[in-house]
Nucleic acid binder design. Structure first.
Lengths: 154, 154
DNA sequence: TCGAGAATCACCCGAAAGTAGGACGACGAA
DNA sequence: TTCGTCGTCCTACTTTCGGGTGATTCTCGA
């Protein structure tokens, strides 16, 4: 409900912005193509931003990938990896937390993880904190190590 | 690749759409405000769509199907690990630094490493700092990851 | 429609990690 | 001897992490 109001206000701001742009006599100074193009670009960017915030359940697509593990002998590091997702459920690790775990394992800082996942650094901290709890560790290197033991990471 | 083409086509459609709208404008059917508003609305919606699409593509949850695990018997990767010591020489990593690297990979803190190796925490920092230089990384998780790639760690 | 779980974000604080620079002694090669 | 490398240790500083608490929003299912 509050969100709708917020969007309403946002719409107002947009219209105002539009007015301002128009007031600048863009229409008269530049040909219509440029004006329209500018407006389009600005609002496409804005729409993308909105769209990323406006999340829906159906956005999550679960893709099942059959993976085969090479038989004994020359294992292929970097080859197909099968994550033991039952461990996730057993430990109560959420999808988002698992995502953060993988990003941690890539050596990213919390800030970088935030940028990658479109969330605030604080949120990353919250996720990783809970993740550490569930993994029973207290440092990120340990988390990665533990996750590898649990076959959550390659 | 196909995605790029798709986006290219999409861009073309956008331009065409713009042209059409513009045509309407030049016919002076609508005043500039309405024209701009229309463009804005259309492209906001389009942006939202794009944003959600983009986000979805980044939220794909890869769920691997359970697979057979190689015989429990000592598989090569789990067995005795042979570090590629030539990499050490190539990168100019000393024995001591390699030792610190292994301890880092165990998830120990600098203090714990110092206790384990009977050296001061500051010394550990010096070693790890030089180690990071030689590995071309800046964080310990990255160092472990990189070392694994270089087959310096299991 | 209510509540539980999730995801999000904020603020604070202390600890840990990392940066930059310098210093010193041991040892071996030039 | 002189030079370079290694290992050790230091100060001082900035950044990052991790813990704790509290709050809002959203979704889903009962």
């Amino acid at each position: 409900m509050r969100r709708i109001i917020a969007y309403g206000l946002l719409g107002g701001v947009l219209v105002a912005l539009l007015k301002v742009i128009e007031y600048e006599h863009f229409v008269h100074t530049y040909p219509g193509e440029i004006y329209g193009g500018l407006v389009a670009v600005v609002f496409v960017v804005l729409g993308i931003w909105l769209g990323q915030r406006w999340r829906r359940s159906h956005e999550v697509v679960v893709r099942e990938v059959p993976v085969e593990v090479p038989a004994a002998g020359a294992a292929a590091p970097g080859g197909p990896f099968a994550a033991d997702l039952s461990q996730l459920e057993r430990l109560g690790i959420t999808q988002r937390e698992y995502e953060i775990l993988r990003l941690i394992a890539e050596g990213l800082s919390n800030r970088e993880i935030g940028e990658r996942a479109f969330i605030a650094e604080n949120t990353v901290k919250t996720h990783s904190s809970r993740l550490f709890d569930k993994l029973g560790v207290s440092r990120r290197v340990q988390a990665v190590q533990r996750a590898r033991e649990l076959r959550l990471l390659p």
